[in-house]
């Protein structure tokens, strides 16, 4: 009971504090949208869409660290993985309707992923959306009972998870040799380089998200040592 009171007080305090912060917000002295849109003059930046430009041109180090965090999550999940085979038959729902729908949907999903990747430079879209759709393909295949062992076995596809970070860093370092800042790509090459980074990121994000899904095997749902289980207090 006291837990409810503590929770109520804490959440009330945080709500009031946030509400005060919203009410007493300072008026901004400069307009970020205008700043961003003037910075994306054609020919200067590699991309025309403001959000993609912020993600991969103006604040690209955020995106670099983001893919690094995703990689760290996969590494930790790999370390916690249980030594047991991930049988496709355990998870696959043996449903002919599901198989038919997957056959129909899969090409479309791949097409949507490719489109989102390509659209990122001019309109909403980008590497993360495309990677999420690709990972969705993998999850759907997995649920339909298709074994993804063939996809995960080869070493070069294992390395695909690291590819995004590697490409990002290797694109970022050459400007430093020329005396510029890290990730400050030359303006005339920016468009191509950003597309290259985005393609590598898409693959890495899809594989990383899929690995995180795969590393929670379905058959581990029952406790390994049932005798250790205590009665839960009512």
């Amino acid at each position: 009971m006291s837990r409810v009171i503590v929770a109520a007080i804490a959440s009330l305090i945080i709500t009031i504090a946030l509400a005060l912060a919203v009410l007493e917000r300072p008026t901004p002295t400069l307009s970020l949208p205008n700043l961003a849109s003037t910075a994306i003059t054609p020919g200067e930046a590699g991309v025309l869409h403001p959000i993609t430009a912020v993600l991969l041109e103006f604040r690209s180090i955020d995106t670099l660290l983001e893919i690094a965090v995703l990689l760290v999550a996969v590494v930790v999940a790999l370390a916690l993985r249980e030594a047991q085979p991930d049988g496709a038959d355990r998870m696959g729902l043996d449903n002919p309707l599901l198989h038919a729908v997957v056959k129909l949907l899969l090409p479309l999903m791949l097409l949507v992923a490719a489109y989102l990747l390509w659209a990122g430079s001019t309109r909403p879209g980008g590497a993360f959306q495309a990677g999420a759709v690709l990972a969705g393909c993998g999850v759907l295949l997995r649920l339909a009972g298709t074994s993804l062992h063939g996809l995960e076995r080869p070493r070069w596809l294992q390395g695909g998870r690291v590819l995004g970070l590697l490409v990002f860093v290797s694109v970022g370092i050459p400007p430093m040799l020329a005396g510029r800042a890290f990730l400050d790509y030359p303006a005339d090459l920016a468009g191509g380089l950003i597309l290259l980074i985005e393609a590598a990121l898409t693959l890495s994000i899809a594989l990383a998200l899929l690995s995180l899904f795969r590393l929670a095997p379905p058959q581990s749902d029952s406790p390994a040592f049932p005798d250790r289980r205590k009665r839960r207090r009512a």
Partner: peptide, 23 residues
């Protein structure tokens, strides 16, 4: 666009940490 890009980054981090927490 600037906070939107930051939030987009945040969403991916949140997805990764949620998946890790589930594992």
């Amino acid at each position: 666009p600037v906070p939107q890009a930051l939030v987009l980054t945040g969403i991916v981090i949140a997805v990764a940490s949620t998946a890790l927490a589930l594992v």
